[in-house]
Amino acid sequence: MDFRLTEDQRALRRGVRELLARRFDREALREAVAEPCVDRGLWRELGDAGFFALCLPEAEGGVGLGLPEAVLVFEEAGRVLLPGPLVATHRAAGSVPGAAEGAVVVTSVDEGLVPWLDEADVVLGDVGGAVPVRSVDPLTPLHRVPTTVERLPAADGVLLLAAEQVGSARATTDMAVSYARQREQFGQVIGGFQAVKHLCAGMLVRVELARAAVWAAAVTGDPVEIAGAKLLADDAAVRNARDCLQVHGGMGFTWEADVHLHLKRAWVRAELGMTAARAEETVAAGL
């Protein structure tokens, strides 16, 4: 099986990266942190670009691509910490009018949590008794709902969350390497110190392992492989953000740095779609 990207897939990833660089740069990220909301203009641009209708058949007005292409797109969204209920709106493209075009914001109940409930036009699932909870991530407002029935998470939604985690893990790896090449201590750049080299190397190993698992699961669609990919992606996103903080030292803990935002988003995503406990049980049952 050949997991190398085709030219069309590379072009798709490049196009999404360019769109996000133009519409959601660091300044826009900081504005979103100050005042969390769904940027309706950007949401419509994503719809026009086919972000939400990517897996919808062409006969239904979609792009007609598959899960392998979707994970590439969501990896780019995770890399820049794009806010909003992206996965829920993407999954609703074929069933909720306006979702595919980005005209409607859709959210859903996920492991007893509802992201962006106040901003959503459509909510999938029972949100009776929903109460706001303080989210560790300033870019992901949350509500909690009382739940007594456990529903199996949608496999494609789990994988798209994992893809976002991979994008975040890649971003923190790049941030750590860039800082290690610039920051000087004791008369030399800290990237020359063995301990820092080991941290950065470990980050790269984790992100590439998680990416390979996510891409492979996107091709096979196997629920057990998707659960394993989510486990690896959650681990890579959280641990890479922590190691990136370590490389940055005291600077990494300041509000001006973006490292903490990746760590906080990684913590929240790890509780959505499929928690580690559920993923471990799924993998164990498969073995």
Rank of each mutant, 00 (worst) to 15 (best):
L65I: 00
V133R: 09
M251E: 14
G273E: 03
Q182T: 11
S178A: 15
V149N: 02
M175I: 09
R265S: 07
F52P: 14
T107E: 05
Q194W: 11
E60N: 07
A99R: 00
H143T: 07
A276S: 12
G228E: 00
Q165Y: 07
L232E: 01
R134H: 13
A120L: 08
V109C: 06
A21Y: 10
A176I: 10
G64F: 08
G62M: 05
L5E: 05
R13S: 12
D110K: 05
G128E: 06
V104D: 01
D258Y: 00
G192L: 15
V96W: 05
C55K: 09
R17F: 04
A236E: 00
A100G: 11
C200Q: 13
G191Q: 08
D258V: 13
T107S: 11
R269E: 10
G192T: 13
A284W: 13
R22F: 03
A93M: 06
D118R: 14
V259E: 07
A32I: 10
G62W: 04
E281T: 00
T173V: 09
R13K: 14
S95L: 05
A201V: 09
V73S: 02
R144Y: 03
F193L: 14
R13G: 14
V104L: 10
V131K: 12
E225C: 11
L204I: 13
A11M: 09
M1N: 10
E225A: 15
A77W: 05
E119D: 08
R265H: 02
A218G: 03
P132R: 06
A103G: 07
A257F: 08
G273N: 00
A77E: 03
F186E: 15
Q182V: 11
M251L: 14
S108N: 06
A266G: 05
A49R: 07
L272N: 03
G202V: 07
R44E: 05
D25R: 13
T220A: 01
L159D: 06
E280Y: 08
F186G: 13
A103T: 06
A103P: 02
R14T: 12
V283I: 10
E150W: 09
E69Q: 04
E35N: 13
E119V: 06
E60W: 09
V131R: 15
V196L: 10
P146F: 01
E75A: 12
D174H: 09
E27I: 09
P115K: 00
A284S: 14
E18A: 14
R170V: 07
F186W: 15
A270H: 13
V196D: 01
L72M: 07
F186Q: 15
E208R: 15
V238T: 10
P141S: 02
K197S: 08
R22E: 09
V205N: 07
D39S: 11
E271I: 01
A270S: 14
A210H: 05
V214L: 03
L199W: 11
L42I: 06
L81F: 05
A279Q: 04
S135L: 09
V80T: 02
E35M: 07
